[in-house]
Amino acid sequence: MPLTLNEVSHRYGPGLPWVARRVSLEIADGETVALMGPSGSGKTTLLSILGLLTRPTEGHVLVDGRPTVGDRAAVALRASLFSWVFQTANALPRRSALDNAALPLLVRGVDRPTASRIAAAELRRLGVSHLAARPARLLSGGELQRVCIGRALAAAPRWILADEPTGQLDHRSTAAAADALFLGRPIGTGVIVATHDPDLAARCERVFRLSDGCLTGEARP
């Protein structure tokens, strides 16, 4: 069942410019999609609308054909459907890598021993199990991004939303992160990535191009 944007427009306040204009698209379960466009084209806004972090000023976000209405519903859907990988790796800086990776599982009601076991396995798969006990603030950017990818994968969500996930990584780390994201994801998990990176976009099944908040094209690499 798809994740759908129906005539979605958004601006961050009355009188401010529109950052998304009448965008309609549909993303199927398990599909990998890239949102591409220059800076300020509205990629991140569209991603946060898709992930129910931002409520659109106009239009609707539909999950499985049903509109998402109300904050409480959005909170529940965020917990059950999505995992995030951000450009600047957002983590709890004073908590261990393992605690960070286990977070989405705890939010979903998994008890801590089970969540920690699953998260530890994910960190091991990503080659960062030796960092599990280290506080996130002491990790390098590449290490932390891999932990955050581990956090996203551990929850086995329906969609992983990634906002410039490789934007601050060197070439080697970029390849490792992209492999983890696209090759390491659970079966059935889709990836929606906002990126400037054509190599990363090329890994996706579909690419939506954005300009000035408008959807200007769709391609299949």
């Binding site: 992930g51 909170v75 859907l77 957002n90 977070l103 989405p104």
Partner: peptide, 13 residues
Amino acid sequence: RSEAALYMATGTG
């Protein structure tokens, strides 16, 4: 606040 936002982004009410 970014930590609180992270909790909310992962579905914490």
